[in-house]
């Protein structure tokens, strides 16, 4: 169920150092989220499309990944034009469609697609282990990186536990319905999940202590210094900063 469909690949984006990709993704998404003009946001969208193309991602998997976003956007297009105040473009009885509502929906569509594509191209193209490595080298607190890696490691295990519990419940004739009994069953299931997680944590911690764990994770990934990495990062940061300043001055 939990997959990382984009983490493996051979494009130059896949081979880039995690730290560089995190910084570039952060700079681009921040700049795009602060943008408020259509002529500028189109440039960001173009950059994000170029990045996705350069990463040579599987198109089907990408479309699947964008599905929740499109559901959200269709909700936005449904709600905002009807609830915003402003110049009325069209009205039918009491239903009014306003211009600011349409404009804002369009802006949100552009921005969210841009940011999601940047995230997919730059962050989803590395494994969580590499992400941890990158965050560590960006001097994020050790404990936070540890939490991320450990949480990632045990999600699959806990999910397996959940499937086992659910299977056991189904063998005993449990059919989920909208009633108190079903909610109670799910509550006990979730409770059991927390109990098992906690007991497992004790075992894992003891096992780690036995192996000499002293609060540090050592990474085995080695990324050689590469001039292309720093050029890429500088280009992305300059572009983001340039567009941001351009928008502030000229608009």
């Amino acid at each position: 169920m939990i997959e990382e469909p984009f983490a493996q690949g051979t494009s130059f984006i896949h081979n880039m150092e995690p730290r560089i990709k995190i910084l570039a993704a952060f700079a681009l998404s921040l700049a795009a989220s602060l943008c408020s003009h259509f002529s500028i946001i189109r440039v960001y969208l173009l950059i994000s499309v170029i990045l996705v193309t350069a990463a040579r991602l599987n198109f089907g998997a990408l479309a699947k990944r964008l599905k929740p976003l499109f559901l959200f956007l269709s909700m936005i297009w449904f709600i905002l034009p009807l609830t915003f105040e402003g110049r009325v473009l069209y009205h039918y009885g009491r239903i009014r469609i306003t211009e600011p509502g349409i404009l804002l929906s369009a802006m949100i569509t552009f921005k969210s697609i841009t940011i999601v594509l940047v995230f997919t191209a730059l962050v989803a193209t590395m494994t969580v282990a590499s992400l941890g490595n990158g965050l560590h080298r960006l001097h994020l607190p050790d404990k936070l990186v540890f939490l991320l890696l450990m949480c990632y490691r045990y999600i699959a295990v806990i999910e397996e536990e959940y499937n086992r519990l659910l299977r056991a419940a189904k063998f005993r004739g449990f059919i989920p319905r909208t009633d108190l009994h079903s909610y109670k069953t799910f509550a006990c299931l979730a409770g059991m999940l927390f109990v098992r997680a906690s007991l497992r944590a004790q075992r894992v911690h003891k096992a780690m202590l036995c192996r000499g764990f002293n609060g540090k994770f050592h990474t085995l990934d080695v990324f050689l210094p590469n001039r292309f990495n720093s050029i890429f990062l500088r280009a992305i940061v300059c572009m983001s900063l340039g567009l941001f300043i351009y928008e502030q001055i000229w608009f």
Partner: peptide
């Protein structure tokens, strides 16, 4: 969080992640 509890917090975070995959019916 000290290092004696960090594993506990991490694995409970995974349990929280998995709990969000549990769907219950509402009508």
């Amino acid at each position: 969080i000290d290092y004696d509890h960090i594993v506990h917090v991490a694995i409970l975070a995974s349990a929280f992640f998995v709990a969000a995959l549990i769907h219950v019916n509402i009508g």
